[in-house]
Amino acid sequence: MVNAENVLICIAVPLAISFLFIKGSARQLVSAFLAGMVGCLLSAYIAGFIQMTSGYSTEDTSIFLSPMIEECMKLLLILFCIYLYGASSRRIELFAVGIGAGFATFENCCILLSSGTLQLSYMLVRGLAVGVMHIATLVALAKGIQLLKLHKAFYFVGIAGILSIPVTIHGLYNLLVSKPGVSSYIGYAMPMLCVILLYMTNVAKKD
């Protein structure tokens, strides 16, 4: 049993102190990172509440409902950051990476503390698949928001449409890794493939 709030305080306080000495985009990245961690904790609260009220099992909640809750929370965080700091394309991506990294770090810390020190292979999977998944879906979301702004469609329907893509990719990942075997290998490879694709679109855009 891990007290997630204590873990959050341990990681968040030093980062919050660092605000005194950093400025500009470094400060924005750290605040996005912190927001990501808080978002992860809130998602866990909401998922727990929905699990209690809906009667879903723990496994079903993590496979079918968690992706929706987590991605909605991440979207809200991105929108909040855009509201606070403005919405240039470079900033949106910075927030996305920060929130994603914070979200993944906090989730990994809690898993690590609750399960004890497991095998290195398991840790690698957690780092390279689950951790990367949060960053990949958020960068996809950020790119979607940039597209919406480009096409002047930054309103509810456009955002809902864009949100559905990371939600379904995240849900697909959770579904694939829920059973051992070939499907789990496909699932573990998916986040890395997404990141490579997103990186390639970045490089192609610069060229």
Binding site: L65, S164, V167
Partner: peptide, 16 residues
């Protein structure tokens, strides 16, 4: 299948 992520996609399709 219980309520799952694909329903978000299906509804986004309608909204879009």
């Amino acid at each position: 299948m219980p309520m799952a992520c694909n329903e978000i996609s299906e509804n986004a399709t309608i909204l879009l």
